[in-house]
Amino acid sequence: MSTNITFAIGQPLYIRMVSPQSTTYVTRILAMSMHTLTISIPYDEGRMLLWPVGTWLEVIASNPGGDYVFNAEILSRALGDVKSYIITRPQTIARYNNRHLTSGAMTRVIALTSGKGGVGKTTLAINLAIALASYGKRVFIMDVDLGTANVDVLLGLRPQWDITAVLAEEKSLLDIAIPAPGNIAVIPGGSGLQELTQMSESRFIKLIHSFNQLDGLADILLLDTGAGISRDVSNFLLAADEVVVVTTPEPHALTDAYAIIKIMHKLQCSSRKMLIVNRAETVEEAREVADKLITASHHFLHQEIKYLGSVCEDRVVRKSLKAQYPLILSHPQSAVAKDVRAIAANLLHLPVNPVNTEANRGITGFVSKLVSLFRRNSSEKILQPY
C-alpha cells in the first residue's frame, strides 16, 4: 500500500461501508478542501445509495505507487442538482480516524435504544452510568431523546443550559455538562422544543462532532436515545461505537426490539450490537427472551447480538423514580442494583467487583473540576465545537 497520496478532481475512488459483507462502489472526487473531499453519491442498479451522516467508510484511492486505503467519515451530503457526500481526508480529525491515532484515549460511545417507550431505558441508562463509574470509569450520560429529554428530571437536576445551546454555538458540550449523583456527569437534552425533534443534518453533524471534546477526558459516553426508529434515533445509532437494545419480556416489546435491529441492518450499521432484557420476572425468562431475539437476528439478518444480561422487576425502581434519586445509590443491595452492576462489569469485561465508592471520590472531584475548568476557558480554541 502506498504511504503517499495525492488527490485530483475527477479521480475515481472505491468506497464501502466499514461493516462485514458490505459492497464496494465506485465514486469520483468532485471538489477538495484542506480537510475534506466532496465525492459523487454512488448508485446501485439505478438506486442512489443514501448513507446517513456519521457513516464510516473504507476508501481506496489508486495512485502510481499503489493503492492507498484509509477510513473516512461522512460529514454531510448534498441532494441538489449534484448529489454528493462530503467525507474526511486521511489524517483529518474525525471520530473514526482518531480511534487509530489515540489508542486508549478515545471516549467509548455507547447508545441505548429501544423499539418502543416504556421499557425503562432511561432509568436503566442512569443506573448503568453510575455502575460503570463505580468501576473507576469517567462516565458522561448525554440525553439525546430530542424534544422530550428527561435524564436531568429523573436525577433532580436543574441545568442552566442544554443541547440547544451547543447547537446554537453559544456553549460547548463541556460548558453544559453538570455533575450528578454517583460520580457521573450529565449533558442535558432539550425538552418541549419542537425544533429538536426535526434536527437538520448540519445541526446533527455539529452535535456529533462535539463528541470529540470528550476524547481523553471521559472514558464512556452513554447516549440515551429516544424510543422508536425516527431518523434522529437511527443517526445516533450509526454514529455510536456500540448500541445496546433494551427490551422487556412482553411480546410487543420484543417485536419492536427486533424491528430496530432490522432497521440497523438495513442501514448497514457497523456498531457493535448488544441486548439487555429489563423488568424480567426471572433470569430464565430473560434468557429465553434473549435467545429468541438473538436467534432471529442471526438467522434472518445475519447480525450477531451479544447478550449483556437482565434486570429483574423490582418495586424499588418506582420508589427511586418518585424520590428522583438513582436506585443503585438508594438501594445498593437490591436485586436490581446487583443486576445493573453485573451488566456494567460485562460491558467492561471485568468481574463483578466495583471500586469502593468512598475510595472513588476522585471521580466526583474530576467531574466538578473539569466542568469548572472548561467553563472558565470556554473561549479557548480547543473547546470550540468542531
Rank of each mutant, 00 (worst) to 15 (best):
L49M: 11
D145W: 03
F211N: 03
A177C: 13
P251E: 08
G115I: 00
L207H: 14
V336L: 02
Q384S: 09
S368Q: 14
V340E: 01
M199L: 14
I86S: 08
L49K: 05
N278V: 03
H302G: 10
L50Y: 15
V311G: 02
V139C: 06
L238E: 03
L254T: 01
M17I: 15
V355E: 08
I294L: 13
S372G: 15
Q384N: 05
L57M: 07
V144K: 01
S202L: 14
Y14W: 08
L154N: 03
R28L: 14
F374Y: 08
A180N: 01
N150H: 12
E242L: 12
H209T: 12
L383F: 11
I141L: 09
L308D: 02
F211Q: 03
N346E: 10
L57S: 06
M199G: 03
G10Q: 11
M274G: 02
I110W: 07
A280D: 10
I263G: 09
K171Y: 06
P326E: 05
N150Y: 09
Y43E: 14
W56G: 13
K369G: 15
N71F: 12
N212C: 11
A257K: 02
K116V: 05
K116Y: 05
G216I: 03
Y25S: 00
H252E: 07
L348V: 01
A259P: 08
G104I: 00
R95V: 05
M34K: 15
A168G: 13
S22N: 09
Q91D: 13
T36N: 11
F374V: 08
P249E: 04
S334H: 07
I363A: 09
L146M: 12
S19M: 15
S19Q: 15
N4T: 13
T38D: 08
L293Q: 04
I260S: 02
I187K: 15
N127L: 03
L348N: 00
E201S: 04
V311M: 04
L49D: 06
W51T: 13
T27Q: 13
S172H: 07
V243M: 00
R375I: 05
G115R: 04
A335E: 13
L154P: 03
R341Y: 01
A131G: 07
V233H: 02
P159S: 15
L193N: 10
I328T: 06
I261Y: 02
V119Q: 00
L49V: 10
H349K: 10
S200M: 11
T364A: 14
I294Q: 14
H265P: 07
S297C: 11
A185V: 06
A240C: 12
V283L: 15
L154D: 01
A168E: 14
A31L: 09
S271M: 03
